[in-house]
């Protein structure tokens, strides 16, 4: 054993567990996440994709066969998302918004699952660093919340800010995202998928390995799934 081994053994010296740890761990966690009943969401779809998502009173609207297909797919993905079985939406959206709002929503859609950013940072990313209030307004008028994840934008001081479906829903969504892994590999195939991919859903529990990034997965011989990471 060389000196580096000694240094590492000393550095990784096991931490002393806090008193009564086992009692606290065994206590049923009151934090099981129940976000919302998927049936309480209502969708409007066109031939090109999802146009609107509302919560509470309302009804689904889809005039054509293509619109009904988009609507059914969106409903399925939404139910999986709310159950913590999906981390991204692949259903197309059909947004009729202005140029500024379009840019804000496009940037918001790029924020990775489980991460948050501030209104000011989003304003900076679209090239209008002083327009954080306008960014907030554009997000407030997001016609498809959750699908375009405007809940991942919070105030610079860490408080939630306004959310179309209410602060409790925003808390529940962010908590759900915090406890759901985004990249799951299969120990049998050495392929890594995004959570929600059809191939990911077939990985058995005992073969699941979570990665923090695709680079991490590649570094130990995994490759990205060709279906969900094209």
């Amino acid at each position: 054993m060389d000196q580096l081994d000694d240094l590492l053994a000393e550095y990784f010296n096991p931490a002393v567990a806090p008193k009564r740890l086992a009692t606290r761990l065994a206590r049923p966690a009151a934090r099981a996440t129940v976000v919302a009943d998927p049936a309480r969401f209502h969708l409007e779809a066109s031939d090109r994709g999802i146009r609107r998502l509302v919560y509470g009173r309302g009804h689904d609207t889809a005039a054509t066969a293509a619109a009904r297909r988009h609507l059914a797919r969106a409903r399925e993905e939404l139910a999986e998302y709310l159950a913590g079985a999906r981390t991204y939406f692949s259903v197309p959206v059909d947004l009729e918004v202005g140029d500024f709002q379009g840019r804000v929503l496009t940037q918001a859609a790029l924020i990775p699952y489980g991460e948050t950013t501030s209104y000011a940072e989003l304003a900076r990313r679209i090239g209008h660093p002083r327009a954080s209030r306008a960014v907030g307004n554009a997000l407030g008028a997001n016609p498809v919340p959750i699908v375009v994840p405007c809940h991942r934008i919070i105030r610079g001081d860490g408080s939630w800010g306004h959310y179309a479906f209410g602060g409790d829903m925003k808390t529940a969504l962010l908590r759900l995202e915090r406890t759901t892994p985004a990249l799951v590999g299969s120990a049998t195939t050495s392929i890594v998928c995004r959570k929600g991919c059809a191939h990911e859903q077939r990985i058995s529990e005992r073969h699941r390995v979570v990665f923090a990034s695709l680079d991490d997965a590649r570094s130990v011989g995994y490759r990205p799934c060709k279906v969900c990471q094209r």
Partner: peptide, 22 residues
Amino acid sequence: QWAVSTWLYRILTNVCVDELRR
């Protein structure tokens, strides 16, 4: 076939790695 500890370490490491991602 797995030791209980190995199974638990797998699940714990999965949780921790995802936490590190954020």
